[in-house]
Structure formats: structure tokens, C-alpha cells
Design a protein around this nucleic acid. Structure first.
Lengths: 107, 107
DNA sequence: AATTAATATTGCAATATTACGATAAAGATA
DNA sequence: TATCTTTATCGTAATATTGCAATATTAATT
């Protein structure tokens, strides 16, 4: 087999897993941290900052974009993007919720 | 190629990615949520609760165990385990830190 | 010691991810 | 229009993950 059986899990569980998957690569963690700490939009220094080839960075950025964490313009040469703060806080909340639900009386 | 270039990233980034990878599968999210909400230790109902074959559950549990999220006894028939609360809070803090660092003045 | 009931490991097939060279596409500038 | 600069896509090889059947292991019970 090899494909995850997503249909047997709840939407909430699938969504958290889907987002976690994007954070499950150090390059994407590094990219997100770098962008989120910038004062202005990002243009083209990620390849130098991260240290992976340009196509690889482009693919990682696309994964991040797919879960809605980036906003800005993505057309042609003058692209300019940054963190989508609303989505960021949404995901922050999802992880907070997940980690909040723990029972204290156990072994 | 195909292998992540972990050596070019910081320990912090690698660690967060490593933990996120464990959360990057709905079965493991479901398992963690189920265990964390139990009043007592877990014995053997996970296969029924989750709906995957016993070897698959065992493998997922092992992934969770590897990042230190489970504590208890894991020997033979009478195994009995639950969430390692200290580690849980440690990871909670890591994700909180990651999501806290965002700059507000952007596009 | 044999049986039973539970989890762990092995082996394998299917699928997904990672990375990058080559190339394409888009837009600014000469 | 030709050129330059930058990002996106394609193609491909290497590696990792997912899932389960078969089997092994473990320890309690008979």
C-alpha cells in the first residue's frame, strides 16, 4: 500500500496533520521563521539564506503557500510576499488547542 | 538525492521539524488525542479505536515513543502507558515559541 | 510445559518526499 | 526586439513513509 488512509480520520485530525507536514521539514521551518521575522516583504534572498538550490526553495515555498501561510503578489519578477498573519494565528490556535487537551491524572 | 540536508539547518529547526513529522500523520494525531484524554493508562484498545491493523498501530506508537511523548511500562503483555506530561509541555512550548515570533508590519 | 492473549518485528509493495539540473516563463531594461 | 534577471516547472534519481500479512516475542494462565 503506502497511501495514508485519510478517510478514516476526522477532518480536524487530517487538517492538523496536513499543516504539521508542512512544518515537518527543517527548510520550511527555517523559511517560515525567516519570513516571519522580516520587517518587509521577501523578494529573492531565500536561496542564499537557506542554502538549497533555487528549484528546491521554490518547491518548499509552494508547500507553505498551499496551506495559506503566505500572502502578497506572486506574479513574474517583482514578487513580494510575507506571512499571512490571520492564517498564522489560525494555525497557532490549532496547535494550542491540540496541546491544551491533556488529562493530568495518569501513571 | 532524496534525503533531507539536515546538516545545513540549526538544531532548533531540525528538532521542531522532527516533532512536527510525528504530528504529520492523522493516525498519530488521533492516537495522541485519544491517549491524552484518557483518565487512565492505555492497554490495548487502540486498534479498535483508530481502525488500522495492529502492526500499523504499533509502528505509529513507536514513532510517538521515539520523541519521548509516552511514558509507562512497555514490557510484554501488561504494557501500560500514557502521555509524558513534561515532554508534552516541552513540545507545546516549542510550538508556542515558533508561532509567537511574527513581525506585524508587513504587506 | 503447553496454551493463550497481547504487542513487536520482518518483509515487501505502493506511494510520497526531497533535491537538483535543465529548461521554461515572466517581466524589466537596454 | 534582444537581453538579462528572477521564479516556476519538468524530469529523474535517491530516499522515506505507509500499511499489512506473516511471524516472532513476551508473559500470564492453565
Amino acid at each position: 500500500m503506502g497511501a495514508s488512509k485519510t478517510h478514516i480520520f476526522s477532518a480536524t485530525h487530517n487538517e492538523l496533520a496536513h499543516v504539521a507536514k508542512v512544518l515537518a521539514h527543517p527548510a520550511r521551518v527555517a523559511i517560515l521563521e525567516y519570513i516571519s521575522k522580516q520587517d518587509a516583504c521577501i523578494c529573492n534572498d531565500l536561496v542564499d539564506v537557506i542554502g538549497l538550490a533555487q528549484p528546491t526553495i521554490s518547491q518548499h515555498l509552494n508547500e507553505i503557500k498551499k496551506i495559506g501561510l503566505l500572502k502578497g503578489t506572486f506574479e513574474g519578477k517583482n514578487l513580494c510576499y510575507c506571512i499571512n498573519q490571520e492564517r498564522w494565528e489560525e494555525l497557532q490556535h490549532s496547535f494550542h488547542l491540540f496541546f491544551s487537551n491533556i488529562n493530568r491524572n495518569c501513571c
